[in-house]
Write a protein that binds this DNA or RNA. Structure first.
Lengths: 376, 376
DNA sequence: GTGAAAGCGCTAACAA
DNA sequence: TTGTTAGCGCTTTCAC
């Protein structure tokens, strides 16, 4: 093994060598604008113009430059560009629980919309939603020189301080309360909850129970409020709410409790997973769905269509939420006119097999027979 | 409605305004290294040294600089740094279906591990896994000047071309086949499938059916191969495989088919969702779990613990996969010694309530009684 | 231990 | 239409 073919992975400690310019060719820093200029026989400026699609370049020159670019495999250096322009063409996303269905979908939409607009997405996952961690993430993002930030809140901060993000960086907040100081984008939680509750009311149910999400969650709160309001507007009193933590398991526990009430005929669960848990409990207790008890969820998971029975639920358009956040943010960044303070994404009702009119007492027998006939 | 409060959806065509420089104060380019230098009464280099934690600065000078930094709210400009060093301290992630449980978890781990190491994560979601889209994403990432790339493959490319990513950018591939040309990190699919199959065999089942994932999926293929091998090693013949598409619905359909076979006593499903669907089918067909049929899943979803019955499954450590990918990538970037070509993350068996010894015929009564006693 | 000079790749502004 | 000049904020020599 001679010196020539020595291991290229220059081991450390060779500081004696460090003076020597050596072979260490800086991991192929591709061709620069100057190289292209030379190759095409023009100035760097002209290359820059072509690179940026400016029009004031003669067709023939432009072609020459384009050819040279292709030949050399030129790609503009983003760092240099950013250094000049102060814009990184990148947006940051601060997110708590990455591992939830809705967040995933939203993130997917954000990343897609952003990259379509030529922006990259930098992700900062945060473990606990405290003021400190959020501010920290925000600071890190500023260091990264992002042009804007999307924050997915989901829940009140644990330490319950009102966080105030610096106002000098465009931002959009998802799943929060309005009046936060930043534009907000969110599913129309109130509408969805109203749909769900009204659907059960329309079927003839006299009492609609609610399995709520955690009280710290913004969306859970909004859903619960809307459920209550809908009942009140119908002249009904809202029964006490049982709160889960979004998990199937908590839905199961609550389902066990509710399922023991003989008068139970209708449940609106704040998400599909808790609805699933509740359904399991009802199955175990021998209460048929939807003959004995109707249940509506919220989210419309991919799986909900093949629950047993397929779940009637409220569809959330997470993609729209993500897309609109980026639209809003880009408007702020571009400084294009004023920006919506609150953007609301409508939900839709998906009626499947977990809801039906209540049995006997509340309804004429004729109806019950008809339902049975339809199923046969 | 006067002009001032006109619809914020700024209609196009307002190009007349674009000339006006207006108040747009270029989002506060914070203080530069020079400003800090001036404030501290030192040169910019000294500030740079302090900023980078070099030691050859006198304590008092250092403190003066630090103070000036804090005072001015200085934060280094990443673009300038990147321009100089050629390193962006950022890694790119190419990912197909964002909306799968495992991918989310993995992404979460990647983002966490990366940011812990001072790297940011740039996400590029790709719709269809074709050679074109992958190459495109890769190119975009290079333009972004990322220092390395993680590709989460999941499936053979649709056009089945062997993609060859340029070799000049460090990369790690997750969920692929080895020998791809890049280091690979993945769950030990074979081990997991063997655990699952052997578990059923150990319980006394003579025939273990398999609900496979899509044939294009690497992991599905690995699981199926391992299941087959395990059976063969036990001297048993593998029954025909029914392939789903990972969804609950496909599991349901296959469950309906399998459930009609009287001799069915044991199923190994390639993921938890298909197992869930199959369980629904079995419930509907009146076959009890685990008394009549045992079933094992793969993944260990959060919800699996509260399925009905709670699902016995193979736990995948997605966090480890993400973390190790970053470790590997960082090693490549840093050029620190050699790098593992294949990193395998072990699985673990989670025994819950969906598996038991087969009934009567296959086993001596004594055993059945003992199992029953244990359950009581 | 500290500072001065040069230049990374690009583009805005001006000059030709 | 094209080229020249200067400088974005930082770090890497090298000199003191």
């Amino acid at each position: 093994m001679d010196q020539e073919s020595a291991n290229p992975k220059a081991p450390a400690g060779a500081s004696k060598e460090s003076r020597k310019p050596a072979a260490r060719k800086r991991a192929s820093r591709g061709p620069s604008i100057g190289d292209v200029a030379k190759a095409a026989g023009v100035s760097a400026q002209t290359v820059s113009r072509v690179s940026n699609g400016l029009t004031n370049v003669e067709e023939s020159t432009k072609n020459r430059v384009l050819e040279a670019m292709k030949e050399l495999g030129y790609r503009p250096n983003r760092a240099a560009r950013a250094l000049k322009s102060g814009q990184f063409k990148s947006i940051g996303v601060i997110m708590f629980t990455l591992s939830s269905f809705g967040n995933m979908r939203t993130l997917d939409a954000i990343a897609t919309a952003a990259s379509r607009a030529g922006y990259s997405v930098t992700l900062i996952p945060v473990q606990d939603p405290t003021t400190g961690t959020v501010s920290g993430a925000y600071e890190r993002l500023r260091e990264q020189q992002v042009d804007g930030v999307v924050v997915i809140f989901e829940a009140h901060l644990l330490d319950d301080t009102d966080i105030s993000l610096p106002q000098d960086l465009p931002a959009v907040v998802i799943d929060s309360n309005p009046g936060f100081g930043y534009p907000m984008v969110d599913t129309d939680q109130a509408q969805g909850a109203r749909f769900a509750t009204q659907h059960l009311l329309d079927l003839g149910h006299q009492k609609v129970w609610h399995i709520g999400g955690p009280t710290t969650s913004f969306s859970a709160t909004h859903r619960e409020e809307s459920w209550r309001r809908t009942l009140e507007e119908a002249g009904l009193e809202a029964p006490p709410v049982l709160h889960g933590d979004w998990s199937t398991e908590s839905g199961y526990q609550i389902g066990l409790e509710l399922g023991r009430k003989p008068e139970l005929t209708a449940i609106f669960a704040a998400n599909d997973q808790m609805a699933l848990g509740a359904m399991r409990a009802l199955h175990e207790l021998g209460r048929r769905i939807p003959e004995d008890v109707s249940i509506v969820g919220f989210d419309d998971l991919d799986e909900s269509t093949s629950f047993w029975p397929p779940l009637t639920t409220i569809h959330q358009d997470f993609y729209a939420v993500g897309r609109l956040s980026i639209e809003n943010l880009l408007q702020q960044i571009g400084g294009t006119g004023s920006v919506n303070d609150v953007t609301t994404v409508p939900t839709s009702m998906v009626v499947r097999k977990s809801t039906a009119a209540p049995a006997v007492s509340a309804r004429p027998t004729a109806r019950k027979k008809r339902v049975a006939a339809e199923k046969g």
